[in-house]
Design a protein around this nucleic acid. Structure first.
Lengths: 151, 151
DNA sequence: CGCAATTCAATTGTGCACAACTCAATCACG
DNA sequence: CGTGATTGAGTTGTGCACAATTGAATTGCG
């Protein structure tokens, strides 16, 4: 039977494995995205914008919900993207509290150079697509459980 | 058949799910560890020290290898732990380049209050132990593949 | 032995995560 | 309509991740 000490053992910590995998991914993304001049969180923002109906853009709040990022992370990140000429930030006319983020031509064009990234990532994992899907499903379920956990 | 656009779709990104799960875990750990006055990376360091042969301590390098953390992360983290009275840092007599990290009495005592953390975490996931083990194995395999990926 | 290469910890600088807070715009309710 | 609550973005401060560099100690090789 497992003792308390066993539970504390480093190599049993699921979160440690999760962190390690996240950081390993980080390294691969860093390499792949260096050419595009993006960090991984910046890439996520670009993904969301590339998916959005062109020319309409997304409010900062919408980006935050989609990417699970708050304004403390997004505000400076978006400023850097703007400084690099990939997005524009404008106060919404309808609601002056809201800021709409829109792709510039350069930002939209970058998509062409990004389309190969996911395949390269999938390849680097050494996993079959179905296995990746399965893992993704488990992780999403895990996240949901953790978010809803009563502590 | 999946198109390039499909591959780019946010909800298909395994890494996004991984990040989300990592951050969800972070929130749960933050809550659980607040009482102990530890952050999650600090908790990992303490786990490693609690596991080590008592009174001997571990070199910074050993901690880094075990936890996948480099000196840029560990040095300030260990200073904070030392400032909080949980560890001591001493230059090794045998090799003056090396710094040995040892638990203080307070650091060793903290283990008693930490033993319940892993069970609470396991409970918060809503997963069976076997399922956690399975996920951990997959993640470790993933990390290994990513670390070894030729880009 | 003597010196170049390596090792180890620390530091610097950039970017992200998150909590706590500010401030203005908007909303809701009496 | 007015006022108190809420919302949205931004800022500040702390801590972590990582790249690049420094400097001292050690190792290895001729």
């Amino acid at each position: 039977m497992a003792s308390n000490d066993d539970y504390l053992r480093l190599d049993r910590q699921i979160c440690f494995s999760l962190n390690a995998a996240t950081r390993a991914f980080g390294g691969v993304y860093r390499t792949l995205l260096k050419d595009l001049g993006l960090t991984y969180p910046q890439y996520l923002v670009m993904l969301a914008l590339w998916e959005a109906p062109a020319a309409e853009g997304l409010p900062v709040k919408g980006l935050g919900e989609r990417l699970r990022l708050d304004s403390g992370t997004l505000s400076p990140l978006l400023k850097r993207l703007e400084a690099n000429g990939l997005v524009r930030r404008e106060r919404s006319a309808r609601d002056e509290r809201s800021v709409t983020v829109t792709l510039t031509a350069a930002g939209a064009a970058l998509k062409e150079r990004a389309v190969t990234v996911p395949q390269k990532i999938a390849q680097a994992t050494g996993f079959e697509l179905a296995e990746i899907e399965d893992l993704r499903e488990r992780l999403n379920r895990l996240t949901e459980a953790l978010d809803g956990a009563a502590l």
